[in-house]
């Protein structure tokens, strides 16, 4: 019990309300799918982040490489070797690092832009027209030529600042981010248009709440659900777009593995070695599925109407 300041003299029950984040976590724990998804994602992240340090390094001479190529699975090479004699297991680990990082960062960028644009155009009538036309413009742009131009223009500049690999990473996540925010923007705008006419927003307005707090306190928390869905879908498409870019030679260099890259490399040997397509495919699917379930559980946990059911 805490004593109250002020004029209150009579003893009152002054229990502080429970923290909401405890409730959120409690609800999240009851969502089986979300827990499984979380575990799977944790394992995958551990696999790609810690794995390469634990696993033996590859230092092969040219002859060894030649002799090693296309080996079947063995104890030294659990997933066999690829057509250049490289350990496929190690390549899966290294590739996952980039793929997961690209997926998460590109998703964050795309959701951030999408939510901001959607929020502004839904909330401020004056911005609605221009911003929605901008969205339409981006939707109608032919994506690949655009990406091509972006890579041509900025690759060297970014490589100079961040180094060749990080430079490519930055370029790719930004490129994917700025070309995939449109669906999120449209969804958010629709929700905001409906929300801002709700009476609780009007009630906050009647207090003289400035727009900034109106948005942060009342509108944003209520668009979480659709944003969460868009976000989980975005991760999947970002991983796949990255692989397409790498395949076209616009992304990471050919010897730099990513799951998407491995998948495309495996395609040409699919008849003889189907596992080279299956493993990266499986890894991508697992990541996407895990993130989807986590998003699902988080969405439920954040919604007080579902929480406690």
């Amino acid at each position: 019990m805490r004593d109250t300041a002020g004029t209150q003299a009579k003893p009152v029950r002054m229990e502080r309300p429970r923290s909401q984040w405890r409730d959120v976590w409690d609800q999240f724990k009851t969502h089986k799918g979300a827990l499984v998804g979380m575990t799977v994602l944790a394992l995958l992240v551990a696999f790609v982040v810690i794995g390469p340090f634990v696993w033996h390094e590859e230092k092969l001479t040219t002859t060894q490489t030649y002799l090693n190529k296309n080996k079947p699975p063995s104890l030294t090479y659990p997933l066999g070797t690829d057509h250049l004699g490289r350990d496929f297991f190690l390549r899966m680990m290294e590739g996952g690092r980039v793929s997961i990082a690209v997926g998460l960062v590109a998703m964050t960028i795309s959701i951030f832009i999408g939510t901001t644009v959607g929020m502004l155009s839904g909330f401020f009538k004056r911005l609605d027209g221009p911003l929605m036309r901008l969205t339409d413009l981006f939707l109608s742009l032919p994506l690949l030529p655009l990406l091509l131009v972006m890579v041509m223009l900025f690759r060297d500049a970014l490589a100079r600042i961040f180094g060749p690999e990080l430079g490519t990473f930055v370029l790719i996540v930004i490129a994917i981010g700025v070309t995939s925010w449109m669906p999120a923007a449209r969804i958010v705008r629709g929700e905001v248009l409906a929300l801002k006419e709700r009476e609780f927003v009007l009630a906050a307005r009647s207090l003289g709440t400035p727009n900034r707090r109106l948005i942060l306190r009342h509108v944003l928390p209520n668009v979480v659900s659709p944003v969460m869905v868009a976000a989980t879908l975005d991760i999947a498409s970002a991983i796949i777009t990255e692989s397409a870019l790498s395949f076209l030679g616009l992304g990471f260099p050919p010897d730099f593995p990513t799951w998407g890259r491995l998948l495309f490399d495996g395609l040409s040997y699919m008849q003889q070695y189907p596992e080279r397509v299956i493993w990266p495919g499986l890894a991508i699917s697992l990541t996407v599925l895990a993130v989807n379930y986590i998003g699902d559980g988080l969405r439920d946990a954040l919604d007080p109407r579902i929480r406690g059911r």
Binding site: R198, F200, L202, A203, R217, N222
Partner: peptide, 18 residues
């Protein structure tokens, strides 16, 4: 603003569900 307030028609819609 503090001197003038409003009670709304729809008690469901006038409270932020979150």
């Amino acid at each position: 603003r503090p001197a003038m307030q409003m009670v709304f028609q729809d008690p469901q819609a006038s409270l932020n569900p979150r």
